[in-house]
Amino acid sequence: MDRILQLLSDLSRRRFLETAGATGLVLASPLARAQTPPEGASVHGEASPENEMVTLTVNGTQHTLALDPRTTLLDALREHLGLTGSKKGCDQGQCGACTVIVNGQRINSCLALAAMHSGDEITTIEGLAHGDELHPMQAAFVRHDGLQCGYCTPGQICSSVAMLAEHKAGWPSYATADVATHPALTHAEIAERMSGNICRCSAYANIVAAIRDVADGGRA
């Protein structure tokens, strides 16, 4: 399992670097609402009156993209930046496979227009590991076998990382008996807080175990 994840991680990193490298500077038309791309930023697509110039900082790297305003954040990540870790499941905000972390908060990237996130900091599944060292939540999912087919896993992991931050900040949930208190992270709390991520293989028991492990300090 570790080997497979490592391969997948290497593949996505390589594709990402290729895509990010294969860029040419576009001369912005004065008609486009263009921003001057910052030094060192990659530029994608062509500026035109129909396109929006969108600057996204994804996993620490700034990108400037000329995008049709209809482009969702998910499609910008997958189709324009080659970051295919975030998955398109339902494409209507019900399954959570597209979950990414924007300015520290988890959102469904399928229900976000990329143009509305210009200037934002985005973390995808590709950005959680440090080099070859998995993020503690990734390691816990491997350790607890928190997946079967793996399609929902990037969304589950991004969601759970941000969910733990929400809990740490003292946010209540529908499972919290007294919303004015800071609830302990019980099984019921984890299940409720993760209800926006569906796993068709129903690996829920192991997903909760992985999250529990990280919340408790884990071995990672």
Binding site: N108, L111, A162, W171
Partner: peptide, 29 residues
């Protein structure tokens, strides 16, 4: 809104109702 301590203490009904809706991801947006 659901996490604001003034709402949680003075209008717990509102926190509960918001938290009963949608998912964590959707409520953030």
């Amino acid at each position: 809104l659901a996490a604001d301590m003034r709402v949680r203490q003075r209008y717990p009904l509102l926190s509960q109702a918001i938290l009963a809706g949608a998912s964590g991801q959707l409520r953030n947006k």
